[in-house]
Amino acid sequence: MSIEEHPGRTETRHDVRVTVNGVPRTATVPARRLLSDFLRHDLALTGTHVGCEHGVCGACTVLVDGRPIRSCLQFAVMHDGAEITTVEGCTRPDGELGPVQRAFRDCHGLQCGFCTPGFVTTITAYLDEHPRPSATEAREAISGNLCRCTGYQSIVDSVLRAAEIRSDQGDGRGETPQ
């Protein structure tokens, strides 16, 4: 890629290699491809949702190298080589619901399900760092994600329940995705 090249007419494409949910994936995309669109449309991992594309709703939250970030505010090229976890990767290794997903089911933590992937990824990372949150902490943990359906109460319950499930399983960390 050279700096003389004028973008626009014939857009340069970049090979982007990532490891998503433990699986190496590659696609060739223009630099402007958002990480969210890359996951959804180039890799067909449509679990990651897009609710605003300006960083506020959190539906697009994925874990990059273990940290939750807004995938709508990143270009895929920036993450060449990264380890990414999406909601599809928050299951147990055998494909059964992971602890956070189970908790959402137990507590009716979702209605339309559109915001859910962003909550599941955010909470998964949060519980790695804070295995035993109080109800207030649980509410703060999800305070960067919008949900228009649930009024959040059942999501707060889901955070607490997920912490319980993880601790019942002894080593909660063993359940977290790679």
Partner: peptide, 19 residues
């Protein structure tokens, strides 16, 4: 009772319009 639709929606297997 827990919802029948949840496992699908919780694992990213939902199918919304843009999917």
């Amino acid at each position: 009772i827990a919802r029948r639709e949840d496992p699908r929606l919780l694992t990213g297997q939902g199918r919304y319009l843009d999917d």
